[in-house]
Simulated scan of single mutants.
Amino acid sequence: MIYINARFLTQKVTGVQRYAIEICKLLPKEILGKKIVFLAPRKAMLNPLFKEFNSIAVGKLEGQLWEQIDLPFFLKRKGAPLLINFVGIGPVRYKNKIMMVYDLAFKHHPEWFSKIFQLTYNLFIPRSLKNSKHIITDSKYVKNDLIKTYNILSEKINVVYAAPSSIFVQKQISKEPIILMVSSLDPRKNMIRVIKGFNELDIPHKLIIVGARGTAFSDLKIPDLRNKEKIKFAGYLSDEELVELYNKAELFVYPSLFEGFGIPPLEAQKCGTPCLVSNVTSLPEVYQDSVAYCNPNSVSDIKNKILEVLNNNTKRDFLVSKGFINANKYTWNKSAEDFILIIRNNIS
């Protein structure tokens, strides 16, 4: 057997859960004659994907306790088979596992996270990495960061990129004066500087911010909303609702301070919307010349780049065209093929 840690089925879907779900949907029923089995806490039974993945509920605990006690206890009774860990810390002391790591923001910027989250991750992630058979990351940037930060051998790490889901497509919808931002309400997503920059603009556009606050992150101090009639916090939206907004928006902004990959701009590109993203961490690797770039630490640069794109039809058309080309380079089918090959190479 090959087991999947499906605790992610108990969590709200953000970028890391989406990665896990999309790859898992494309996994075969078995690899090299070994059946793939999904293991999850009982709470996951409320998620329709629990049944779709033919998951098994094991143990009685939840959250980290389930992952550190119930899950490894079950695996050891089964002879310590290979485990695939898509999200979070994983069972720290369990060694026969492939571990997915999306970024090391908790290490480099602990101030962005709740105290309990950053302390837990900084204590246990290094140990779990050391005890992993193999590691997968979502960009070359994260791979190099792992090598530099934790002195992990390069050959122990593979890169498997994320991709936009197939639901994100261009529709025959007229553009509206909307600047769109989609992310969890996480300090590193840089929403505060976007709002400050937008407050200084004299344009007819609305700023719509989509996303929910996560328990892992530190509190955000929202600045004075001078244009509050033009700023809308839409909360958490379904993919169907997101597709409509992506298609309506004249500009998508993603001036993140730290990303391991960054899926939302790909979704916007698939919907024919030009993107403004930050020029740091993994984003130049993923988006190359298909987006406009800004300095995420500068309110004035974010503001000026928003105006530059909105006021230049030729530049917007160029970014839309380049965006389609870029987004089409990333597919979940290709990523799943790469992921399956890594599993095959790590089966004892």
Rank of each mutant, 00 (worst) to 15 (best):
I136T: 04
T137R: 03
V159R: 01
I157D: 05
N151C: 08
H108Y: 00
Y141S: 14
S128G: 11
N54T: 14
K60F: 13
K60C: 08
K60Q: 12
I157T: 07
V92K: 02
L65V: 13
A57Q: 07
L123N: 09
K156E: 07
F117Y: 06
N151P: 07
L61I: 07
V92I: 05
I69S: 09
V92C: 04
R93Y: 12
K140D: 14
L65H: 12
S55I: 09
D138F: 03
F117R: 00
M100L: 14
H134D: 12
T137Q: 03
Y94C: 08
I152R: 06
I69K: 11
N96M: 10
K115A: 12
F113C: 01
E155T: 10
E67D: 07
Y121N: 03
N96I: 08
Q64R: 09
H134Q: 11
L119A: 12
M99W: 14
F106P: 00
L82W: 03
L71W: 05
A105R: 02
L75N: 06
F117Q: 01
L82A: 03
D138W: 03
N151T: 10
N131I: 13
I116P: 00
A57F: 12
V160C: 04
W66N: 04
V58G: 05
I147S: 08
L123V: 08
S139A: 12
F113R: 00
